[in-house]
């Protein structure tokens, strides 16, 4: 059986909120290392990969592999009933028909309990190759969100060019063009404001801004976001969570011109 207790419901609320517009029905794969999710959007342009390590829960118990097929719209409805600071416990039997969610208020004696019916989801699981990326950029997640939103006002796609000069986000649209360039930057007092660029070779790729803006819904999960790029492979956008847990998005590049 599965029993996983999260100190704050907020974490799961934010994760589900960040991915629910991209993917609808997903398997939450539970085993003794934690709870994982991998799903593509309907058009197979983007892929979500979430890992909530067992260390992110206390306690965490999962004796055997269990796939919880959950509709994220249903899960959102139930999670709305949880206060951000509630303790959240997920429970399921070994061959479950439902997943049980319990929300406990730390301040009052209120205990809420919900069951969500599970679905049989036949999802293909993709192998994501280990990649030595040509460029890795760590930057404030709010900054990345702002750049994507600002450029989307002009164009549907953005080119991300990384060179030793820095990283340049540029777009061209009907009304004109725009770009934002960032250079490495260290803020001793506020490390969340750091921009770190690790480059082994110059990279230039073009991506759909609609997807990037969607990924940025995860910004409240982490002060920093990591962008990993290599020519002609999908972009990795990673939001690191506590205890080596993470929420990752992969986005296929635009091809040709």
């Amino acid at each position: 059986m599965l029993e996983a207790r999260l100190e704050q419901a907020n974490l799961l609320k934010k994760v589900v909120d960040a991915i629910k517009d991209l993917v609808q029905d997903c398997n939450f794969d539970c085993n003794d290392s934690g709870i994982a999710l991998q799903a593509m959007d309907n058009s197979h342009v983007a892929l979500v990969s979430m890992m909530l390590k067992s260390e992110s829960f206390s306690p965490f118990r999962c004796d055997r592999n269990i796939a919880l097929g959950i509709n994220l719209t249903s899960l959102t409805k139930v999670l709305r009933a949880a206060q951000n600071e509630d303790i959240l416990t997920l429970k399921a039997e070994d061959a479950p028909d439902v997943v049980n969610l319990v929300f406990e208020s730390a301040e009052s004696d209120r205990i809420s309990e919900y069951d969500i019916k599970l679905m049989d989801i036949d999802q293909e699981h993709l192998g994501i190759p280990e990649t030595e990326y040509a460029a890795t950029i760590s930057m404030p997640s709010a900054e990345f969100q702002r750049i994507c939103r600002d450029l989307m006002a002009l164009s549907e796609s953005v080119s991300i060019e990384c060179s030793k000069e820095g990283v340049k986000f540029a777009c061209q649209g009907d009304i004109g063009s725009g770009s934002v360039t960032l250079r490495s930057h260290t803020n001793v007092d506020k490390p969340e404001m750091n921009v770190e660029i690790d480059l082994t070779e110059p990279v230039s790729l073009t991506f759909s801004l609609k997807y990037l803006v969607g990924f940025c819904k995860a910004s409240s999960l982490s002060g920093q976001v990591k962008l990993c790029l290599s020519n002609e492979v999908p972009l990795l956008v990673e939001y690191a969570l506590a205890n080596n847990s993470y929420l990752r998005f992969y986005l296929a590049p635009k091809i040709g011109d």
Partner: peptide
Amino acid sequence: TAGQGSITSFFGAP
């Protein structure tokens, strides 16, 4: 204009 690539052409079955 540029076409949109697909994730499945990069990431295959494990």
